[in-house]
Structure formats: structure tokens, C-alpha cells
Design a protein around this nucleic acid. Structure first.
Lengths: 241, 241
DNA sequence: TTACGTCTGTACGATGCCGCACTTAGACGC
DNA sequence: GCGTCTAAGTGCGGCATCGTACAGACGTAA
């Protein structure tokens, strides 16, 4: 188990210099994140921040009439629970495990203390938060202007970026909930992508066959966000100085 | 002039205790913000942060094909240029003056220094940033699920919240650009609101006649964001401790 | 007053997505 | 092997918004 899982699989933890990492290490708790688990509800007080390693988390907004929309995803590139150090403690969003896996969690007050030292951890977390802001903003634009098919491409690419392999465990129904569209719309879009040889799927298993073509078919929103993540969080130790 | 304009017309500046306020005061520069002025372009390095007092700023994302969408508005409750202290220095969005007025600006390095003191100013700015995140997220949901008419109501209410009077200087064409919809869609929605006696308008002048009814017709998105702003930024000195 | 530009109203077919209903096809347990 | 459940495919009418085009109304400046 301890060979398979390591905190540095999370890019933010990996970007820390040893002083900060060593301080945080004893506080890290490995947790399994089963598909569908709700890590926090809208308005709920957060007790932990989560550093995903092999799982993916969806940030969902749910409307009064029950429909929903994913506004951002968090995987091993990020951290869940920014409102803890931003000072709000809660957010109006719901966090759901979108892809089964593992992650590390840290008690809220621990990360707050570290943040309040106003050192490299603060700078790193804020830069990540800005990248997250970009993702949310671009999602707003994408919801307005782009087709279900383009958004499905975006969603597939975002997911694969946060996974090791090329297979996703995810039904069309769940994807529809994430994107905030009908299940049939996803079926139709997925059918086109399948026909074009970009993906393969069956009963909740999706295989990405031709990523380059997917990247050509996706709307700009995917690339804009990716570029911004790369700019704000160049991998490894570069950020923390 | 100096009677008409005062930094404390901006709620964030007003929330500062005297020590921080006095430090910042000599650095504040009053600037006029004419309608349509672009305060920064997507990807541009920001030289100042802006504290609006009587103007309103729109944060717009522009797509490759030229269509756009407003993802947040900033008025006297906020600050423009969070990417400066978040550490990114640039964002993929464009900031445009949506309503003529005034504001104060501060050079980027000044606000960075203040932020890096890790005192009340940092805490205040981060709380504001979290409120902004909520606004962006809710905009994403609204773009997905709600009608043009509901979004127009939201837009009108957001604008009036940031102004003193009940009249907006804004054509339907410009509103359409903000919302990322057709001008005709706005005409139709505005026609309904006019017919119902909620607003009056003519050639770029919009009067809000019945705000309570507007609030009943708007989608939840407006209220969710308002509640979150009020929670995170309870007025005046309460926040900065 | 006239001419021009801007703002607003209206019409119409096209399109993409919705809501609903029903079918088909794998997966799984007994 | 059989029923059952869940995932995915299909069909159809309805609706909101789009794209385009044009007409009227108002304001301003010559």
C-alpha cells in the first residue's frame, strides 16, 4: 500500500520544499475516495482539505430545481477546499468524487496555520486558486457558447489529464449531470466521437483512443485552462522558490 | 471634487482599520472611468489594482470567434485585479468599464507589499476573492440553466446594487454582449419586463421601477451570490478585526 | 428642417437542446 | 439459463435561442 501511494503524487505537495513538506507530512492522512462520495455539501463547514493523488473530484453547483453543473474539477494537480484558507470556510458548491481513487487529507486548522506563516505554502496555494478561478470562468463561457459535443471533449480531456491511464469509469448519465445537460445529449455526442474513432465505450467504461484528434475537436476552453495551469503551476519545485 | 469622491466609498477600503488605511491613503490615485474603457486586456500584465467607487467594471471572457460573456462584475463592493496578489499577475479575462464613474487605483507593487504583510489586508482581500469565486461559479450555472429574461433580471439587480440611483446608462446591445446573447433576445426580455411594469427604458437609459418584483422574477443565482457577499464581507470594520 | 446614425421592435426559418417514452443490449445474481 | 437491473440508443414534438433581415423611432448635428 505504501509503495502504491505517496503524497508527492499530488503536484502541490510535490512542489513543496522539504522544510514545509516535512512539517506537513505527519499530518497527512491517506483516504480512499469511492465514486460518488460527497466530500462536502453546499454551505457545509469544511473539516479537511484534500490533496487528490489518484482520484478526481468534481465541484458541482446544484440549482433549486435539482439540476446541476460542474464548475471545476480537481485532481492530483490541486487541492480541494480552498475556502478554508481563503477565509470563507464554506462555499455554495458540492464536492463529489468523480473518479474512484485515493488522496491525502489534512485537518483544516493545520493547513490554516501553515498558510498563515505567509511563506511558500501560501504563495503556492494562492497560485493554484487563481488557476482554479480561470477554470471556473472558462466553464462559464463554455456553458454559454459551445456545443455539448465540444464540452464532452473538454470533459474527457480534463479527466484524462488527471488520471494515469486512458480509461474512465463513468456512465453517460453521470457525465450528463456534470455537464448539466440531458443524458441523451451525451449519448448523441459520444456516438459521434465513437464513430470518428476517438473513443470507445460500453456500460460505464470509456476508453480514449485518439487523444490528438480529441484535442483538435475540443473548444478553446480546454487549452486556455491548460495553458493557465501550466503557467501558474510549472511542475515541481520551481514555484515554491 | 474632493467632497464628491472619497476612498471610503469603496467598501473594501472602508473596511480597513486606520493603520492600514493611513498607509494606503497616500498611494490612492483618483481616476475617471469612462464607459467602455478597457482597464486590462486578456493576458496583459496588470500595473494597478482598482477600487471602484461610483463606476462598475465588467470581467469579460472573449472567445476565439469574438463572442463574449461576462463572468463577474466589480463595483464599489470590490477590487479589480485580484491576480496581482494571487500571484498570477495576468488573467485570461478582459476588464471593461460598464458604467461610467470614478475609482481609486494603487500601483501593483504597493498592494503586493501590503498583502505580503500577511495582516488584515490579506485576509480582507482573500475573503473578497472568495466572494468573487462564488459569483463566477454561479454565473456558470446561470449560463447553463436559466433563461435570458432571468439573466437580464440578475444583471439589472447586480448593476443597481453597485450604483446609487435607479437609472442605468446602457443599451440593449451592450447588455447582450455582457450576457453573451443576441441583442434581439435582450429586446424581447426587456419588453416583457417593461410590459410588467418592472422597468422603463429608452435609447440607452434604463430605469428600474419596481425592484421587489424584479427580485421575485430573478433566478436564485442573484440571491445566492448576494448572500455569499454579505456573509464574507459584512459591511465596515467587522472583517478586518 | 433635414439628414444621418443609433437604438429598438418585429418577423421568420434554422438549429440545438429539452422532455418524454420506449427499445435494445450488456452485466449480474440466482 | 433465466429474470432483473442498469447503460445506452432512438424517435418525436416542443421550445428557446440563433442568424439574418428590415423597419420604425428617436437624438443630434449640420
Amino acid at each position: 500500500m505504501s509503495d502504491l501511494h505517496h503524497p508527492r503524487q499530488n503536484h502541490l505537495l510535490d512542489a513543496l520544499l522539504s522544510a514545509e513538506y516535512d512539517r506537513l507530512f505527519p499530518e497527512l492522512e491517506l483516504v480512499h475516495m469511492p465514486l460518488g462520495k460527497v466530500l462536502y455539501e453546499s454551505g457545509e463547514h469544511l473539516k479537511h482539505v484534500y490533496f487528490p493523488t489518484t482520484c478526481i473530484i468534481s465541484l458541482l453547483y446544484v440549482t433549486e430545481n435539482g439540476s446541476s453543473a460542474e464548475i471545476a474539477v480537481v485532481g492530483n494537480e490541486g487541492i480541494l477546499g480552498v475556502s478554508i484558507f481563503m477565509g470563507g470556510d464554506t462555499t455554495p458548491s458540492r464536492a463529489v468524487v468523480q473518479s474512484d481513487g485515493y488522496g491525502y487529507r489534512v485537518k483544516a486548522h493545520i493547513i490554516k496555520n501553515e498558510f498563515n506563516l505567509a511563506g511558500p505554502v501560501l504563495r503556492l496555494l494562492l497560485r493554484y486558486t487563481q488557476a482554479l478561478i480561470t477554470q471556473m470562468s472558462q466553464t462559464a463561457v463554455c456553458n454559454r457558447h459551445h456545443s455539448v459535443e465540444q464540452q464532452l471533449c473538454r470533459w474527457l480531456l480534463l479527466s484524462q489529464d488527471r488520471l494515469s491511464g486512458n480509461e474512465l469509469i463513468m456512465t453517460q448519465e453521470l457525465i450528463a449531470n456534470m455537464l448539466g445537460v440531458r443524458r441523451e445529449g451525451v449519448t448523441e455526442a459520444a456516438g459521434k466521437l465513437h464513430h470518428a474513432g476517438l473513443i470507445d465505450y460500453s456500460r460505464g467504461h470509456i476508453k480514449i483512443l485518439d487523444r490528438p484528434k480529441l484535442e483538435r475537436r475540443v473548444c478553446e476552453c480546454y487549452h486556455v485552462v491548460k495553458v493557465e495551469y501550466d503557467r501558474l503551476l510549472p511542475s515541481l519545485h520551481a514555484i515554491a522558490r
